[in-house]
Every structure is written in structure tokens, then in C-alpha cells.
């Protein structure tokens, strides 16, 4: 922002009518911080953290498919074994749950930066249109998903907090048994209201991810025509897998297929 701009030396009888940009005098800050201060940089970081989060969400969904595996000869649900396995990675060289915590912290950082970037850009954009249009907008290109990122994002955020309280900490679960994932899931999702909330949240997640993936290419500056040709398909495909996988849990539990 240190460029020379319009050194307008107006005479006494001259009224200058240019709007002045709101002054944003930033002192010398570190590279990352100044990068993050720019909208484009912030979008870039949002896109990268989004990639990490989508990766997590996808593998989280895949891992949860263990729910459908029949229990082993020892009678322990496979998903319980899988969960235990995650905690036990690297033992005894790495302390128990060590790697899991590293991943959790990384993921938490990605979430925090994604959330902060998202809300702050949304808030800044909102402020640039202090007077809204009176007429109903006729949208031609802007999809429902793209226009409602902040709403779907907020739903997902609230859901994540609930989901942690529900199936990780067990604080909002009536019949929570630590370590018994299969039991917790099935007893938790048996309640239609809870299952409904899971369904709604995952639909919101789908919308969010659908535009997010498509948008990521743009934010990261991909001008490759080959990627452009496939990015809608890629976004739709990944979204479909995540949403179908995730919706299957409450639906199959609710309908009693899994019990």
C-alpha cells in the first residue's frame, strides 16, 4: 500500500470531489500477516485451509464407513477397533493419542483460520454495501450454494460443536460410553430430532463444500483450461461422496437398518 497516488494539489478555489479510501495505515508487519491482511491473500489461505478441511471431512466419512462392517470374532465392533487404532498409532514410540493430537491441533488451526477469514471477509464485503438493493435480485450465475456460504458455514460450525459434544465428549449424549463408538452412534442417532439435525447439517455441509471446491481453483489462481473443464465435475463428485456417506449414518440408523 506504499504506492504514490494522486498527489492532487488543489488550489484554494478548487473543490476536490474524489472519495478518499478509508486510511489503512499499516506499519511494517511480517510477510504472512501482511499477506493475510489482503483480501486475495486471505482468500488464498482460506482455500488452502479449506483443502485441509475437506480432506479431513472426506477421510472422516470413509473411516466412519467401518460402522457397516460386521463385528469381528471377538465381538468388538470394527469401528471401535478403528477408533482405538487411531489413538494407538505409533505406540510405543509416540505417546498414546500423540499423533491424533497433532492432527487435531493442525485441524483446529485450519478451522480457526478458515472461520476467521470467512467471517472477516464476509463482514468487510457487507460493509461495502451499506445500502442494500430494494428490488429482489434476479440471480443468473450466482448459485444458491455460492450466495449462502456464510449461512451454510455457520450451520456447519454449530454442528461441529454439537457433534463434538455429542460423539466425542458425550456431554449431550444420554447414553455415552467412552470408547464404544458403535454404541454411541446408534443410540445417539436413534433420536429423530438428533438424526434430523445431522441430516440438515450435512446438507449444509454439502452446499458449502460444493461451492468451496469449485471456488478454490479460482482463489488459488488456476487458469488451466484442463482443470477448468473438470472442476465442476470434481466439486460435484467429491461433494456427492461426502454427503451420501455422511447422510447414510443417520438415515440407516433411523430406519433401523443398522442397529
Amino acid at each position: 500500500m506504499g504506492m504514490l497516488r494522486g498527489a492532487i494539489v488543489a488550489g484554494d478555489n478548487v473543490t476536490q470531489i474524489r472519495p478518499k479510501a478509508p486510511s489503512d495505515e499499516s506499519t511494517a508487519v511480517s510477510f504472512l500477516l501482511s499477506f493475510y491482511r489482503s483480501q486475495v491473500g486471505r482468500k488464498w489461505i482460506m482455500a488452502l485451509s479449506g483443502v485441509a478441511i475437506v480432506g479431513f471431512v472426506f477421510f472422516h466419512m470413509l473411516g466412519n464407513l467401518h460402522l457397516y462392517e460386521p463385528a469381528g470374532p471377538d465381538g468388538v465392533a470394527r469401528i471401535d477397533e478403528y477408533a482405538e487404532g487411531l489413538r494407538a498409532i505409533g505406540e510405543p514410540i509416540i505417546p498414546r493419542s500423540g499423533l491424533l493430537w497433532v492432527a487435531r491441533i493442525g485441524l483446529l488451526a485450519a478451522f480457526l483460520v478458515h472461520i476467521h477469514a470467512g467471517y472477516s471477509l464476509w463482514w468487510k464485503s457487507r460493509k461495502t454495501r451499506p445500502v442494500r438493493y430494494d428490488a429482489d435480485r434476479t440471480w443468473v450465475t450466482a448459485s444458491f450454494a455460492s450466495r449462502n456460504m456464510v449461512i451454510t458455514g455457520t450451520i456447519v460450525l454449530l454442528f461441529i460443536i454439537y457433534h463434538l459434544a455429542h460423539l466425542t465428549w458425550g456431554t449431550v449424549h444420554d447414553d455415552f460410553i467412552p470408547g464404544e463408538v458403535r454404541h454411541n452412534v446408534i443410540t445417539g442417532l436413534d433420536n429423530p430430532i438428533v438424526a434430523g439435525w445431522y441430516i440438515v447439517a450435512n446438507l449444509a455441509l454439502g452446499l458449502h463444500v460444493l461451492h468451496g471446491i469449485w471456488s478454490m481453483f479460482q482463489s488459488l489462481g488456476s487458469t488451466s483450461p484442463r482443470l477448468a473443464a473438470i472442476r465442476t465435475g470434481l466439486a460435484t463428485g467429491i461433494t456427492a461422496l461426502i454427503v451420501l456417506g455422511n447422510l447414510s449414518f443417520p438415515l440407516l440408523v433411523l430406519t433401523g437398518v443398522v442397529s
Binding site: 504514490l4 497516488r5 494522486g6 498527489a7 492532487i8 478548487v14 470531489i17
Partner: peptide
């Protein structure tokens, strides 16, 4: 030239 301060621009 405007950005360099060499030309003072009066629009409208």
C-alpha cells in the same frame, strides 16, 4: 502521470 503528481486531474 496523475499518480506521479505531474498532472492534476479535474473530472466532472
Amino acid at each position: 502521470q496523475i499518480s506521479l503528481g505531474k498532472v492534476e486531474m479535474h473530472t466532472r
